[in-house]
């Protein structure tokens, strides 16, 4: 049941106005006797952690039929106990500015910029990954130092650098380190230094 703002407010309005209002209403019935269903009462609660600073506040994303309806603090998290700072509280907007309205600034397509071009052009994701793999191989093969002048195996690839990131998950960081080290990359860094 996709609730847009009007219907929603009508719902809250109904619960707010309580009994039918007559010209000379005598006594307003208690408003909140029955639980008014609203946007997140029947939504699935998905626990997650805030992606901004490193306090690690718990968050709950309310999802119904795959649609993100609300994002709030997780009261069970002993660190944040349901609170979120402004950055955490706004994190739903990474995906949706409002329910059903995707954030227009989000980039949802792979893009490619030719040397010297003044604008992006769209590119197929798989094709982009193939081209990237070729460039990584080409750069590695070109600048690879297998052994140093004393004959010691050093397996160093100084043509390729990797930056990033303190904003990605542990599992992703591990894969970055594992792959980059196996490519012989020594220029490997992330935010922690800046």
């Amino acid at each position: 049941m996709q609730v847009n703002r009007r219907e929603f407010l009508k719902l809250s309005g109904v619960s707010a106005a309580g009994a039918a209002v007559v010209l000379f209403a005598d006594e307003r019935k208690a408003l909140a006797q029955d639980l008014k269903e609203h946007r997140i009462t029947k939504a699935k609660e998905v626990p997650t952690v805030c992606p901004h600073c490193s306090v690690g506040c718990g968050m709950i994303a309310y999802v119904k039929e795959g649609e993100l309806l609300q994002l709030e603090g997780n009261p069970d998290s002993p660190i944040s106990e349901g609170s979120l700072c402004p950055k955490g509280a706004a994190s739903m907007q990474f995906a949706y500015d409002a329910v059903g309205k995707a954030n227009p600034l989000r980039q949802l397509k792979a893009k490619y910029r030719k040397p010297g071009a003044t604008a992006w052009e769209e590119i197929d994701l798989e094709k982009a990954l193939d081209m990237i793999a070729e460039r990584v191989k080409e750069t590695r093969d070109k600048s690879f130092v297998a052994t140093n002048k004393d004959g010691l195996t050093v397996n160093r690839n100084e043509g390729l650098a990797h930056l990033g990131s303190a904003c990605i998950d542990n599992e992703e960081c591990y894969l970055v380190t594992k792959l980059m080290r196996s490519l012989g990359v020594v220029y490997l860094e992330h935010h922690a230094r800046i």
């Binding site: 809250s12 619960s15 408003l31 639980l35 008014k36 603090g73 349901g82 609170s83 979120l84 509280a89």
Partner: peptide, 23 residues
């Protein structure tokens, strides 16, 4: 501000109350 009337009538805290970092 509606004092989050829809939330408080559903045994929830107003949105600002539940998010306030320093309670």
């Amino acid at each position: 501000c509606t004092l989050c009337f829809d939330r408080i009538s559903n045994a929830m805290q107003p949105a600002c109350v539940s998010t306030c970092p320093t309670d």
